[in-house]
Simulated assay, not measured.
Amino acid sequence: MSDALVIIPTYNELENISRIVNAVFAKRPSFHVLVVDDNSPDGTAALVTKLQQRYEHQLFMLNRKEKKGLGVAYIAGFKWALERSYDFIFEMDADYSHDPNDLIKLYNTCKEDGYDVAVGSRYVKGVNVVNWPLGRVLLSYFASMYVRFITGLPVKDATAGFICYKREVLEAINFEKIQFVGYAFQVELKFKAWLKGFKIKEVSVIFTNRAYGKSKMNTSIFSEAIFGIMTMKLRSIFNRKQYEQK
């Protein structure tokens, strides 16, 4: 039995899912994998079912009826993990932009070094991205700067989605009050963990642009992230004042 679960949300990742799953299972210490599939029309779920025959009791899947957003998929995965005995729970993309070799660094940061959240960061040591269009690099980098300026969150890569959470962090967060469903979900979860006093460590990793399949990024995703952050910060201030007045 592994103490670590890697959650991989998928929508039309038929070209990537076998590669990423096989790579994760090649690592030591061993990880379990939960694929959360949003009813992919390309047959991603069917391929995962075949892979489960090879990785019995290691590879699991949640089939959701429709695509409702990255945050909703991860919350479903978190709830599944917390119903079981995993102590370290990871977020990871299916498109190989996150290097499976870096899972060990994130795992050790939490288990051995005592941090509560380990963030695979593109920006803790310069800008570590490969094959990204310049426009996307600039947008991502300045979005993270904006988040730090507005919220005070001491994380240089606030929008990163390659993360290890200790079980206690996710148990402390009320998922019913999560505001965002897109990529801003990544910011919100880090922000809530930080407000609750959990220790966050950024670990330098290299991100690589996907080679197969279609990116899920669009302007509405960034609009949610940019315009919703201010609301999130204001709500945190208002809620704290309410608490202090009681």
Results as ranks from 00 to 15, higher is better:
residue 70 L to W: 01
residue 106 L to T: 08
residue 75 I to V: 12
residue 48 V to K: 00
residue 76 A to G: 14
residue 69 G to V: 02
residue 66 E to Y: 10
residue 86 Y to H: 09
residue 134 L to V: 15
residue 101 N to K: 09
residue 96 Y to E: 14
residue 103 L to F: 01
residue 131 N to W: 01
residue 142 F to N: 11
residue 137 V to P: 03
residue 132 W to E: 04
residue 148 R to Y: 02
residue 70 L to R: 03
residue 83 E to H: 10
residue 50 K to E: 15
residue 83 E to S: 12
residue 75 I to F: 08
residue 109 T to W: 07
residue 96 Y to G: 09
residue 90 F to K: 02
residue 83 E to K: 14
residue 55 Y to D: 03
residue 136 R to Q: 13
residue 141 Y to T: 00
residue 144 S to V: 06
residue 146 Y to N: 09
residue 129 V to Y: 03
residue 78 F to H: 09
residue 127 V to R: 07
residue 132 W to S: 01
residue 60 F to Q: 03
residue 117 V to R: 07
residue 68 K to F: 10
residue 82 L to M: 13
residue 65 K to N: 15
residue 99 D to Q: 12
residue 63 N to M: 13
residue 117 V to L: 03
residue 91 E to I: 06
residue 82 L to R: 02
residue 108 N to G: 04
residue 51 L to F: 03
residue 74 Y to V: 01
residue 116 D to R: 03
residue 90 F to L: 07
residue 120 G to V: 04
residue 118 A to G: 11
residue 112 E to M: 11
residue 60 F to M: 03
residue 82 L to F: 05
residue 58 Q to N: 13
residue 85 S to C: 15
residue 53 Q to S: 12
residue 69 G to C: 08
residue 102 D to K: 11
residue 89 I to N: 01
residue 126 G to N: 06
residue 141 Y to C: 01
residue 149 F to D: 09
residue 93 D to T: 13
residue 50 K to F: 03
residue 133 P to T: 02
residue 81 A to L: 10
residue 74 Y to K: 04
residue 113 D to R: 06
residue 144 S to P: 11
residue 59 L to I: 03
residue 142 F to D: 05
residue 73 A to W: 07
residue 57 H to S: 14
residue 95 D to Y: 01
residue 47 L to Q: 09
residue 98 H to C: 14
